[in-house]
């Protein structure tokens, strides 16, 4: 790992429409192992926020515990972050989101943090359709405690110590589709071309956007026989590329008719699904589940935008929250005053 990050910026680094360079979206230097897939995800998040020209301070980063949950320190240094407790980031994000609906919430978690200790909160986060992006850096093992199998490790995958995992893995993407998530994607940390637009689309989506990112653990699960090693993931990758056009940009690329599907988000952003498949519509849960099951049964890692409902009602809408963030309301809006209290007293006599 590096222990120093130069502060020097090339004077001609391109700026986004807010005048920020990509370096303005950097965080502290990573303390993860050299070659860790998670660092590529951090870079993809940084690039996605830069390209979408999101003001860094309007993003709130949240995480649980584990290697994955250390990541938010390593990107978006100008954003507030919250490293909460193991498996409980979903509830913290839920509270933060209803308290200030104006910020953009980005949750980063891992397979242990989400699929084991945090499974209960994760499912309920989906159920409530909290307006946030939730990324799982999924390597099938517990890195910080030195390589135990996690609940997403595939059946028969071989761990670092040579033993085969005897349990079926939990497929978080299938679970999210089934539980009613309004945006579900899967990607691979080594596939920047797909991961960046997917993150941008997720952050533009109103409602709960989930991205399961296969992110190999170079130290504990990159061995022969591991189904989540770089080599195995590359070999079995079945990627559906996407292109993301934010609402402010004009559409420049023309795709050949029949080769892509187009989905428009609530804010007017457009997602192009390239190499679209005839039997697959991104707005169909049935298609998504079928495709995921088919890929799973043939040992393939299907990636791309798997499901999207651009018109879902997020939690803030369901709760009919005022448009002004709750954390900014003053006594005038909150306190009924002494006269009302007097009449309450009267009613209790």
């Amino acid at each position: 790992m590096s222990y120093y990050k130069p502060k020097f910026q090339h004077p001609k680094l391109p700026k986004n429409e807010l005048g920020y360079t990509v370096a303005d979206y950097d965080g502290a230097v990573s303390t993860l192992c050299a070659g860790c897939g998670h660092d590529s995800i951090s870079a993809a998040i940084r690039n996605a926020c830069f390209l979408s020209a999101i003001p860094p301070h309007r993003i709130a980063k949240l995480s649980g515990i584990g290697c994955s949950s250390k990541m938010p320190t390593y990107f978006l240094g100008r954003s507030h972050g919250f490293n909460s407790v193991h498996g409980r980031m979903p509830s913290v994000a839920t509270g933060a989101s209803v308290a200030n609906r104006d910020l953009i919430y980005l949750g980063v978690s891992g397979d242990g943090d989400t699929a084991s200790i945090g499974m209960g909160q994760f499912v309920h986060l989906i159920r409530r359709n909290v307006n946030m992006t939730y990324i799982v850096a999924n390597n099938g093992c517990y890195g910080l405690t030195k390589g135990q199998d996690s609940a997403t490790a595939d059946l028969g995958s071989v761990g670092k110590y040579g033993t085969k995992n005897p349990f079926d893995g939990i497929d978080l993407a299938s679970l999210a589709v089934l539980q009613g998530a309004s945006f579900v994607g899967r990607s691979f940390s080594g596939d920047k071309e797909q991961l960046e637009p997917l993150i941008r689309a997720a952050m533009a989506h109103r409602g709960f956007a989930f991205i399961d990112v296969v992110s190999p653990c170079v130290t504990f699960a990159n061995n022969v026989g591991s189904t989540k090693s770089y080599a195995a993931t590359r070999e079995n990758l079945d990627a559906m590329p996407i292109d993301f056009v934010p609402m402010r940009e004009e559409i420049r690329t023309q795709y050949k008719e029949g080769s892509s599907q187009t989905v428009t988000l609530h804010d007017g952003s457009i997602i192009h699904l390239l190499k679209a498949r005839k039997d697959y519509k991104a707005d169909s849960r049935e298609d998504a589940l079928m495709a995921l099951q088919k890929a799973n049964s043939t040992g393939k890692v299907l990636t791309g935008l798997l499901y999207l409902d651009p018109n879902s009602q997020d939690l803030n809408q369901v709760l009919e929250l005022a448009s002004k963030p709750l954390n900014s309301l003053g006594m005038d809006e909150l306190c009924p005053g002494s006269r009302v209290l007097k009449s309450i007293n009267e009613g209790l006599r």
């Binding site: 909460s84 933060a96 910020l103 954390n327």
Partner: peptide, 10 residues
């Protein structure tokens, strides 16, 4: 957790 998150946000 929800209370903690909301309080964090003020």
């Amino acid at each position: 957790g929800i209370v903690v998150g909301a309080s964090w946000n003020g």
